[in-house]
């Protein structure tokens, strides 16, 4: 169980830091954080695990995505040019 979680986690973390698309990186970050909370449950730290999901998985990636949406210009510009024709 621990090995499965840690394998998913490491793959998720690697994909987070290497993926080209920012939103996909956020998605993989979510996977990583949720699997870490699984490891906390294996370590009998249920409260930390749930707080991890609540705060880390619930709020932090949403904040990050919010930042991505607000600072990403590319998609919007592309769609504007495609529309102007």
């Amino acid at each position: 169980m621990f090995l499965v979680f840690s394998a998913v986690e490491i793959v998720g973390a690697i994909l987070t830091v290497t993926s080209k698309k920012l939103v996909r990186a956020a998605f993989w970050l979510l996977i990583t954080l949720i699997t870490i909370s699984g490891i906390y449950i294996l370590l009998r730290a249920e409260f930390v695990a749930l707080i991890q999901i609540l705060v880390y998985a619930g709020a932090v990636p949403v904040l990050l995505l919010f930042g991505i949406m607000l600072t990403r210009k590319k998609m919007l510009e592309e769609s504007e040019t495609s529309e102007a024709k």
Partner: peptide, 8 residues
């Protein structure tokens, strides 16, 4: 945030 046109 960038300005963009929305068709309604």
């Amino acid at each position: 945030m960038a300005e963009f046109w929305v068709n309604m």
